[in-house]
Design a binder for these strands. Sequence first.
DNA 1: CATGAATGAGGGTTCATTCAT
DNA 2: CATGAATGAACCCTCATTCAT
Lengths: 223, 223, 223, 223
Amino acid sequence: MDPKVIREQTVRETKTTLILDAARKVFSEKGFFDARLEDIAAVAGFSKAALYTYYTDKEEIFLSLAIRDLENLYHQLETSVNSEINFLKNLEKMLITIFTFFGENFALFLSVSNFQTMCKIHKEKLSEKHKLLFAEVPSKFRKIMEQQVMLIRAARARKEIQSDIDDSQLANYLGALVRGIIFQWQLTGKMGDVKAEIRQLLKFMAHGLGCPANAEDPIISTM
Amino acid sequence: MDPKVIREQTVRETKTTLILDAARKVFSEKGFFDARLEDIAAVAGFSKAALYTYYTDKEEIFLSLAIRDLENLYHQLETSVNSEINFLKNLEKMLITIFTFFGENFALFLSVSNFQTMCKIHKEKLSEKHKLLFAEVPSKFRKIMEQQVMLIRAARARKEIQSDIDDSQLANYLGALVRGIIFQWQLTGKMGDVKAEIRQLLKFMAHGLGCPANAEDPIISTM
Amino acid sequence: MDPKVIREQTVRETKTTLILDAARKVFSEKGFFDARLEDIAAVAGFSKAALYTYYTDKEEIFLSLAIRDLENLYHQLETSVNSEINFLKNLEKMLITIFTFFGENFALFLSVSNFQTMCKIHKEKLSEKHKLLFAEVPSKFRKIMEQQVMLIRAARARKEIQSDIDDSQLANYLGALVRGIIFQWQLTGKMGDVKAEIRQLLKFMAHGLGCPANAEDPIISTM
Amino acid sequence: MDPKVIREQTVRETKTTLILDAARKVFSEKGFFDARLEDIAAVAGFSKAALYTYYTDKEEIFLSLAIRDLENLYHQLETSVNSEINFLKNLEKMLITIFTFFGENFALFLSVSNFQTMCKIHKEKLSEKHKLLFAEVPSKFRKIMEQQVMLIRAARARKEIQSDIDDSQLANYLGALVRGIIFQWQLTGKMGDVKAEIRQLLKFMAHGLGCPANAEDPIISTM
DNA sequence: CATGAATGAGGGTTCATTCAT
DNA sequence: CATGAATGAACCCTCATTCAT
């Protein structure tokens, strides 16, 4: 390919990266609605107007960011997966990846959720192009979820999981715990010792509260 | 007390209730920043200006709402707690209460979190009065958490819980699962069969993934 | 009707009148695109935001103004029409009305025309409501034109007009002359003695250049 | 002259022509304010920045275009004039020239007028250079007008015109009719059969409405 | 107390113009 | 000379908040 074209593409990519990184910082801190393009531009080292060279509007920046980051997370998780090692070990690696990834920017994903809620209401506001972009967000979420479903399935095949709850539901619980914990961090403002936190979480996931199997208990007797 | 004063107080309370109910609807749908006072006023059956008779500004409405609802949740949970019955039964009752409470308005609590984040940054924006109000929010969260810690402690005393993870951490996981599940509902837009959902959730909490105790596994061997 | 309602309506009408009058001044001076809402508001004695209490956007102000003024012109012309007196006398009255009306605000109607041109191109930009409003503009023009067609028809019936050009075409020429003359005033920046100007114009309309009927001339031989 | 200099000049002229042609198209469609330099550049086959190599700013492009086109019209009209043939024949040729010239770009001259109006107000905005350029516009208009005055004078000398209205006023009416008709085309969006349109227009100019000479009518009795 | 109307502050977006390559 | 990218200055519009009635 023409070296000039390559160089230009590289430069362009560098700049969109700068912008999206700035956007992550600002959106994470302020949420979608309170984030100011001026702040994003300033953090990225551009003028507000320059952003429009790379993105058509605020929504596109936001959606592009969400998609990029989810895609990145997906790829990072992919390298964490290794069906050779045992399930909990593998899960530990993934959790480290996830907590590292979301650790400082989980607020962004609260925004994603809120923004999505809004869009359900104001769907007519989204141009066709944005509708397409927007649809990619849940699609990325789903891809990540499937990754984990596959991990669980493999573990079950190796008898490492004995719960009779179905795979995708277990993946849901896994996701829920992760989100819930990060949410908690947000709320309390502290993050704790990630390594230790993960150890405990794994223990909980492995055995739950550790209730004794009780034939009289209608809830768990079916297990 | 002067009956007239009582009457006036009663009327005032009725109106603030109307306003906060409207606020819950609107904040839940739109989040804090996208919610318009005009919408809240319309839903409450007032004009926008009338809101200022009862609250000094938008933030106060939001905070008052969060505090009121968390307080309500706390009281509803209190009536669900009954240390006579077994732990999982009790938990089931609480989960029904929580899911019913948050089911349709969880977005509101995403907003609480976002709003809190914002406040960390713009603390100077909050008047002294708001700072006090604001501090009540995590305080209410904590109260609810303690309720559950006590439930867990009682269960542990009755040998219904054998995990060596400490009580408040378990309560965290419980909260995390609940929040995570509702978050999931938000994201996918569907709610499913709440009763069945709770049953499965209880099973998961009781035993986790059901991993076999494995002496060689460094993660769970300490359990 | 409730006096309060009447009072409120009256006040509202007064204010919309103030705004449209201000809009006429500003649009006439600057044209649609260069006119600033801030200027209109200032001239009307309001803040910019106040305009939005009465009109949804700039376009609506412009269209409302055009429609109001054309309607006014129509009514003023209606009172000028009197089929009892002879045609040229009647025309004289109408011309006085028209020149007085457009004298200082013809630029506005250049804007109308330009704006209309734009709208042909950007039709998709006009909301449904604006499409309806917009359609009224040519409709008002047509109403005025028809007034003049009827005047001409009556004159022809009384043998005051002998040209074989059809009525609506003659009305077109009449309109063209009027517009053209005002356009000229705009261009040169002077207005001259309106009374005298009209006298001459009438003479011209009555007999044109006064070319001799020439059987050999292929152009006018058919007359 | 140095052939290289000549070549460069020729190339430069070609490019300015490309730009002004593009400008005519865009200004005609959008008017001065809504025309975007980007559109002009695109139509001309340049980048926006390139325009600044040939013109100092948007205003200069506009004024240069107006002057060039009026000059062109002047020269085209010059070749249409032939005092040997009779007046109406000659007028017919000129009208064909004019309608052809303005037919599709009359909106441009609405813009000229609007722009001029604006300039009356914002004269301070025009640099000295622009003031000079700007002055050329009415000057060109005047030149064209004089052409027609001379035509009329010649016709009068040959007794082809008997109206006692003075020559320049008749030229004004002629111009007014032409402008007014094109304005009408703009407004209605249709153009009709130009040839036939001109025939009728000539008839109207020759004899007007064809009012009977009426000694009692104070308006036309002086004729 | 309730409200319609008014407003100031602020944000997203556009675009003529400049500049580095 | 040509251009892609950058920018500052504006402008339209929104909305929480205030005020007169």
